[in-house]
C-alpha cells in the first residue's frame, strides 16, 4: 500500500531531512514512526500524505508515484488520507461542526449526508453534543479528539497522526491511543509518529525508527 524506496528529502538551503529511507506498510497495518525530535518523523509523514515531494528515490502510494503526480492530481491523492497534525490546525473561528464538516465539503458531500457523517465522527471520539462549541472552549484532549474526528469523517483508508499525544497527560494520551487502535481494528491503515517509547512498547506494532534522517530499524 505504501512503499518507500531509497527516499531522500533535501530541503532548499541544504538541510537533508531524510536519506536513503526504504520501508513498506501493508494495507490495514499499524505503524509507528519514532526517533528524537528533528529525526525526520514529520517529513516522513508529509511525504506519505503528498504534502512534500521526495528529492530522491520513489514514494509509492497504492502503486502511484507521488513524485510524478501532476499538480492537479495532488489534492485528490491527499483525500485518501486522514491527517491529524502536530499542532491540530483547527479553525478557531468556526464551531466544532463546521471544523469537522470541512473535509466533506472538499469532497463535495453536503446537506443531510454530511450532517449524518459529522455526527457519526463526533460520536466516535466522544464529542457528540458539542457541535456548536467553539474549539477554543475545549480542553487539550478534546481539541485533539476534534482533530481526529475531522481526520476520519471522510472515512479515509489511511490515518496519519503526527505526535497525537505530545501535549497530553497520561490518561488523555491513553484515551487518544485507544481511539487509534479502534480505527486500526476496523481495517484502517494507521501511521503514528511518536517520540513516546511507552506507547509503542505496549502495542507490538511495526516500528520505523529514524535517527538524523536515516532508518535504524
Amino acid at each position: 500500500m505504501i512503499k518507500f524506496d531509497q527516499v531522500g528529502k533535501l530541503y532548499p538551503g541544504g538541510y537533508e531531512a531524510l536519506r536513503n529511507v526504504s520501508f513498506e506498510i501493508a494495507k490495514g497495518e499499524l505503524a509507528f514512526v519514532t526517533g528524537h525530535s528533528g529525526a525526520g518523523k514529520s517529513t516522513l509523514l508529509k511525504l506519505i500524505a503528498a504534502i512534500e515531494r521526495p528529492t530522491a528515490g520513489t514514494v509509492l502510494i497504492g502503486n502511484q508515484n507521488v513524485a510524478k503526480l501532476r499538480p492537479a492530481a495532488i489534492p485528490h491523492m491527499r483525500r485518501k488520507f486522514g491527517l491529524v497534525f502536530q499542532d491540530h490546525k483547527l479553525l478557531y473561528d468556526r464551531n466544532v461542526y463546521d471544523n469537522v464538516v470541512l473535509p466533506l465539503h472538499i469532497n463535495g458531500i453536503l446537506g443531510n449526508e454530511a450532517a449524518k457523517r459529522v455526527r457519526a465522527a463526533l460520536d466516535k471520539v466522544g464529542l457528540l453534543g458539542k457541535e456548536k462549541a467553539m474549539p477554543i472552549t475545549l480542553s487539550g484532549g478534546e481539541q485533539q479528539r476534534l482533530a481526529i474526528a475531522r481526520a476520519v469523517v471522510s472515512r479515509p483508508s489511511i490515518l496519519i497522526a503526527d505526535e497525537p499525544t505530545g501535549n497530553l497527560d497520561e490518561t488523555y494520551a491513553a484515551e487518544i491511543m485507544n481511539l487509534f487502535y479502534a480505527f486500526h481494528q476496523v481495517g484502517v491503515t494507521v501511521i503514528i509518529a511518536s517520540h513516546d517509547a511507552s506507547t509503542i512498547a505496549a502495542s507490538g506494532a511495526k516500528v520505523l525508527r529514524l535517527d538524523h534522517g536515516a532508518m535504524t530499524s
Binding site: P75, M77, R78, R79, F85, D93, L102, P103, I106, R150
Partner: peptide, 16 residues
C-alpha cells in the same frame, strides 16, 4: 489563511 492552508492539506483543489 489558516483555513486555506488546512483545506489544501486535506485535499482541497485550487478551484475549491
Amino acid at each position: 489563511r489558516e483555513e486555506i492552508e488546512v483545506s489544501q492539506l486535506i485535499g482541497a483543489t485550487n478551484a475549491f
